[in-house]
Amino acid sequence: MSFDLALLSTFAPRLLTGLGWTASITLVSVIAGAFWGLALALARRQWRGLDLAVAIYVAIFRGTPLLIQLFLLYYGGPSLGLTLDSTTTGLVGLTLYGGAYFSEIFRAGFTAVPAGQEEAARSLGLGRWLTFRLIQLPQLLAAVIPPITNQSIILLKESAVLSVITVPELTFETTRMVTETFSVLEPYLAIALLYWAAATVVSHAGRHAEAALTRHMSPPASGLISHDTPEAISNPAANKDEPHVRSRAEHHTCS
């Protein structure tokens, strides 16, 4: 086994096409998953009856591997009359999976805004919409952007699993390169580098979004805006006396 750069340049166009697929799939499923997650979190708040149903949904989608979920959707779906093509299955699968995590992020985010603020705003004569738009939304966004960034990076990496249902994304193209060249070193190092670079881009984008959203907020609200400053940890989502440490899903930077 020796390292062959020429091999990489030969396959570069295909790997980059794969990377394009990976990027598009991640983007679409992050956006769709965030909306789905928001819908789930809102439904849970509005209708108590849905609380248990959403909780079960979240437990199932967070408690089983994405790979199995995709297998079930793709190979099991047709026997239930649901035949989606591989790319659609991948997007739907990632959205449903990501939605479970996003809904938890939003649920925590809602509790980031103390109820007293809403009461105060209302007593000052602001309508419901304005209260939400001017008081609650900016703080909610500030609270959810870091964990959403982290979850986006996780979805970027998890999208590699779509290769098993024949979606021609980066990992799929790399597997083809491996079977055609019988080499493992160059393809796998190249793909590691590409994912790493992509994750770094998402991480930086997240920080930019965060900076833009919190520019007007001073001083930094409850320390949840930055990943790296020492105060960054206390999570207002948890009980006041119970500081909470973010997990893989909630805390993921890539610096």
């Binding site: 990496k157 493992v184 993921h252 890539c254």
Partner: peptide, 22 residues
């Protein structure tokens, strides 16, 4: 930390499996 958090576990496993024999 950045590498192991920024790349898919699948790729990490493949590298650990195939590269050491070389």
């Amino acid at each position: 930390i950045s590498f192991f958090r920024g790349t898919p576990l699948l790729v990490q496993l493949l590298i650990l499996f195939y590269v050491p024999p070389a």
